[in-house]
Amino acid sequence: MTKAMLSIDNAAKRFVTPASMGDRIAHALGGPDRTQTVHAVTDVTLTVAKGEVVGLVGESGCGKSTLGRMISGIYAPSSGAIALEGTPVAKMAGKRIQKLTTRVQMVHQDPFSSLDPRMRVANTVSEGPVHHQLVSAAGADDNVADMLVRVGLDASTRRRFPHQFSGGQRQRIAIARALAMQPDLLVLDEPVASLDVSIQAQVLNLFLDLRQQLGLTAVFISHDLGVVRHVSDRVAIMYLGRVVELADTVPLFDRPAHPYTRALLDSVPKLGAGRGAFSAVAGEIPSPLNPPPGCAFHPRCPFAGPRCSVERPILKAGDNTPGTVACHLYDGGT
């Protein structure tokens, strides 16, 4: 592997919901502590090489979006480090984020809420670069035109407001805004999840084009395995805040090792699978407020043994696994 562009080292994010005033008084008087801690992301270690696209996949509550926001610096890690070529993505002053890098840019899921409805497209796209003096104020308009053309929009639309565009076009604008900052890393959080299927294909094709032209490095977050398989070089499968399997895309989809990865792949409805072809994982996703002990997947896992509810498996390569996997099956049995 070439030198890592992004390195995530043992990063974790905990959200603490403070107890209500009444509960705090009760606690001071000897009652139980009602502070709740959500372990959104726990001990994630991951690198993204220059020019590589890494997919983050998982179901709700798995922490993929939180991790995306940690990478773009919006959330400061509770512990661990996230750095871009050695420089932390967020400069901290104590516990507060002081300054964010411009080198990581983000594309949000919902293009209807990620664009300021009262700002013309030209201002939306040029605001960041002009402020950070990546382009001069005089050159901003040409730059906007270039960016819009690059994402497949007509440059003459730049005087319009977001509501004058369709969902797919808005997502193109959001991508243009991110690209205008000349980022070294793009974080795409479910960029096609809210689009119609036919529009989804257009935006995915745009991403593939841009990747080819600009050699983009990206973290692509999605719940849709088909989408991730299509655009990513490597895939990290997340479950309840942890990466449970990390491998190159092709071997991962060919022979998934972790029982959760297998279950996830089986659950995806497939075109032409034939009537009645369902295979479902039993059980529900546990609450990240109160994750199961040991391996978080053990209550739903068909292979779970006594060891799984006690000892947490570590992410490592096993015999004939496509990459690294956190499962006792490949580490001396359950």
């Binding site: 773009s72 610096g73 964010l100 411009t102 983000m106 300021d116 605001e127 960041g128 805004r177």
Partner: peptide, 8 residues
């Protein structure tokens, strides 16, 4: 959030 992440 997008404006914060830019950052502005």
């Amino acid at each position: 959030e997008a404006a914060i992440a830019t950052p502005l």
